[in-house]
Amino acid sequence: MAQVEQAVIPEDELASELAPAPFADVVWLFVRIGLTSFGGGLSAWLYREVVGARRWMKDEDFLGALTMSQVLPGANVINLSIYVGHRLHGGVGAAAALAALLLPPMVVVIFIAMLFQHVGNVPWLHNFLEGIAAAAMGMTIAMGLRSGRRALANGRWSFGVIAAVFVAIGVLRWPLVPVVLVLTAIALVFARKKRTIE
């Protein structure tokens, strides 16, 4: 999200007219993004291509969909791809975008895992991968802190919800379903009033 905010393109560079988006081009774009996006940042890439370079969608349309994809359950970029696909080519477009984004990297990731299994139980390789996983978790922490900053902008009650979720799920390992349901109900009460901007 923050990456996207920085990548906003000046208005005068945006054509008022949208360009046509041929079906094959849409599918190919999603294949390319799925296969080259190491370590995340997929939403920002979609934005640059779909809104910036190709002018298939309007800025506000895309950013609205980005918000929606973050609120809904499911991986953000998957929800976003469904919206973009649907916008450009209806239901078939949504299904095609999803398949194009997921199927090629699915096959690739399994082949990498097979290769890893073949190489066997090499300690340094395990340690190397563990280091990668730790840095990827750093990326996750950074994302969590960013969303926390956004949450606190809506009121200090957010901190209580964040802490309650963290302790219940992360530390106490309570089951996800009831915790999320109860805390969502509580959060909905607090979120009733929009906080005036100070």
């Binding site: 996750t140 957010s158 964040i162 802490a163 979720v165 963290f166 959060a187 979120a191 009733r192």
Partner: peptide, 21 residues
Amino acid sequence: QIQRALIPLACGLILAGAYAV
């Protein structure tokens, strides 16, 4: 309203996931 309510939940879950791993 739903959007505002779900942001802190997302944040708590993301950090809990990192902590668990």
